[in-house]
Design a protein around this nucleic acid. Structure first.
Lengths: 306, 306
DNA sequence: ACCTACTGATACCTGCCGGGTATCACAGCC
DNA sequence: GGCTGTGATACCCGGCAGGTATCAGTAGGT
């Protein structure tokens, strides 16, 4: 019943992701036989079958799926331990704040300004990342704190503080008929035949079925909109998407999006606590649009550049 | 930069807790020299000094304190991975529900009754534990779901759903003057000279200073109250404490206590989700105290399956 | 049916590293 | 100064991780 080693977990994750011992071994930089042995020993020690080795390839069992999820979390925790310890030893470590590239730009700007003007605040390093990447950065210790968006991002396992609430806009190619409307509903933008919703890859890299184009970066998507191939519904403050060729139209019945500041619950760092306090103070004293209370709806119709 | 092994983390935690290489080695069942080497290698790999080896013993550095906290979390995550995987392989595994012994007894009773009468529900095993133990049981995979109490328990890192809100009562020895009152305030019960508040051990086993008796189990404390040596302020539904020699008097200005059902955010198990749904349904249909203030927030955000 | 290609499992060897014993170096303390 | 107790160092040994070579089963092409 002695507990698992991280090496075994890494090996299992590699095999479970590749579903192929040979490729997994290459990825791990070892030969295939030791990998087979390690997985076999893991199954023996856990007393559970993790993989179905059928004809031509490998499939995960139910227990294997559980271990894949748990092992990823455990490996993240181990990596976070190493990273946070290294950074704790660095006397003038900056705090790392992760934010989705292009999202909540004004909020981030004001937050950084406020921190810069505060005398005792620790320096902050900003890490701009792709959609959904913040959670992993927080979990494995590469970031100390992150700006995330409810209900889009998975906030499970983090402590959070709401910062602001805003509506959503549809981003359309400028020439499209819908672009001339001054407001839309979800029904209007759902199933527009010539503007199918784009598809993002799943964790395993595969794409869901559907008519829309396949994308994996924000720039791709923004360009596809400009080309008149798809449309988006995003929070009003997202800036990276909005090209001159785009038109933003408020979607009145889309669910509101809350920008939150999130941090790992294990964090007892005073620097993180003080950053969160600064962010909350910012929210309470300087609402982004005048006359708004804490939950200001910033539905400012985005000015079309020129 | 290759990542840490769980063995190294276990070794470090042992040393950090014992603050003594020899004793830590005994606890780990190895000799002292390999332990020194392992810690030394860990420090070299992390590039950080973890321990101050001064004259006569060892002290943690700041980085060491960070690693101690992170390593415990990581080891829990690894242990949870093993436990949950084993249980996933067991076809007729019961769900494990952890609850503080003696707390929320009626709620627990009704929950179990409701589950027993539900046709498709998985069997539930109840794990009664000491104060504050639920969080660790959830974190390291020994429990799937737990009843916890805000603001007493640390809910950081778990998903929760509120179940009920209740006031608090003071538990007094029957003969005491205060016991004849029909209600009290916090000012009444604070600093009663002959009934000082009891002291619980900290994580490291030491006790805070103060006049009250030292306790580490609920039964001890209940008996001390019966003996007229201390008093308690606890949620009204806590039953384990209430002996015939006790009198419970409502404390009108004590903060309300919310009983919540909590589960690890990684849990995508449909069995856990259905149990939480049952608990929420129970709350919404059969309030524990008629006309009592209760929260009817149904925020079913349970992730469904993998 | 054959052969072939490709899969993961097995056999066996080797070198490294984790763990053991013996000892050292250093500090406090009678 | 010796004594005691600490962690570090030196050195040896055995087990296990990792390598190569090979086997074994299955799908597919002919």
């Amino acid at each position: 019943m002695e507990d698992l080693e991280t090496r075994e977990l890494r090996y299992f994750v590699a095999v479970a992701e590749e579903l192929h011992f040979g490729r997994a071994a290459v990825r791990l930089g070892i030969a295939q036989p030791p990998l087979s042995r390690a997985i076999g020993r893991l199954e023996r020690r856990l007393g559970v079958r993790l993989l179905d080795r059928n004809r031509r390839g490998v499939a995960l069992t139910d227990a294997g799926r559980v271990l894949l999820r748990e092992a990823r979390a455990a490996l993240d925790a181990v990596a976070a331990a190493a990273r946070r310890t290294r950074r704790a030893g660095d006397p003038k470590r900056p705090l790392v704040l992760a934010s989705k590239a292009g999202a909540s730009h004004e909020l981030l700007q004001r937050l950084l300004d406020a921190l810069a003007s505060e005398p005792g605040a620790a320096p902050v390093e900003v890490l701009l990342c792709e959609v959904g990447e913040q959670a992993r950065l927080l979990r494995d210790g590469r970031a100390d704190v992150a700006l995330m968006h409810r209900p889009f991002d998975d906030l499970a396992g983090f402590d959070t503080e709401d910062l602001c609430v805003e509506g959503q806009v549809a981003i359309l190619p400028a020439g499209h008929p819908l672009a001339s409307r001054d407001q839309l509903t979800l029904a209007d933008v759902r199933d527009v035949p010539d503007l199918p919703i784009a598809r993002w890859p799943r964790l395993d890299g595969s794409y869901p079925d559907g008519p829309g184009p396949e994308v994996h970066t924000q720039s791709q998507l923004a360009q596809l909109v400009a080309l008149g191939r798809t449309l988006l519904v995003i929070p009003a403050s997202s800036r990276a998407w909005q090209w001159p060729e785009h038109v933003a139209v408020p979607v009145v019945d889309a669910p509101n999006v809350t920008t939150v500041i999130a941090w790992p619950p294990s964090s007892h760092s005073p620097a993180v606590a003080s950053l969160v306090r600064s962010a909350a103070r910012l929210r309470d004293t300087a609402p982004p649009s005048p006359a708004g209370p804490r939950t200001t709806r910033l539905r400012t119709a985005i000015a079309q550049k020129d």
